[in-house]
Amino acid sequence: MKYHCPKTFADAAQIAADATGVIRYLAGGTDVLVQMRAGMVTPDDMIDLKHIPGVKEIVQNADGSWTIGVAVAGAELGAHAGFCADYPGIVEGLELVGSTQVQGRATLTGNLCNGSPAADSVPAMIAAGAVAHVVGPNGARDVAVADIPVGPGKTSLTKGELISAFTIPARGAQGGDAYLRFTPRTEMDIAVVGCAVNLTLDGDRVASARVAMGAVAPTVIVMDQAADAIIGTTLDPQALDTMATIVSGAVKPISDKRGTAEFRTDIAGVLAKRAAKIAYDRAKGTK
């Protein structure tokens, strides 16, 4: 295995484009190192992105939006008061990935590109409408985070393409988000179901909302109908029940070692209700 430390994304893309064997990018490394030791993947080229300027930066842009570098670890994102205030749901999603130790390394980029439908930070990114900046041999493009994963372990990125940063829209007034997942233990598990809700309020009523569910389909899925069920409401119990019913009706989970399809279906609605309430309270500024 060759270990590369490019200084620019263009160089990184070039190395990847020129490679003839298996390549892996190294940001946090918390997935790829596990896969290497387990013999699941043996990269020929390992491209470490952490020497590229800016990859560790969290920047709030003039319009209030946020740009997050690809090597920002969970612990770094969680320590950023400004971002935490705007998008606590994204932070709590990333912070649920693994232990405190894993938080020292794990990144939004890695969590996304690993392609797991159960990735904890992805639903909140999608619910927030985050955009990935992609560079590649044919130039740069912006892709909605929702469009990056295409199936378990698969992304829409083509050979030589890699993510250079994320932009998350400005929070704006009266907005809030939340991510909840269900795991058998309190920590250290993969989500059996994950749910992110991002919403804005107009007074007491929900003005806009996005609901994204993890681990209930081959990729994280956005549930517009579920969001519609709470838009215009004060998130009263009936609206929440309606949303929960829609969520549980729309998910298409599998049964595996982590939970049965029936169980996932049941708790998807429960989590959606609970996450929506937290997001609502945050938007109201009551929590």
């Binding site: 058998p184 233990r185 993969i190 070692k257």
Partner: peptide
């Protein structure tokens, strides 16, 4: 065996 790692062979952790 489907769960031959500590991630899925779930021994109690401190916060449990």
């Amino acid at each position: 065996l489907q769960n031959p790692v500590f991630l899925d062979y779930r021994v109690p952790v401190a916060s449990d």
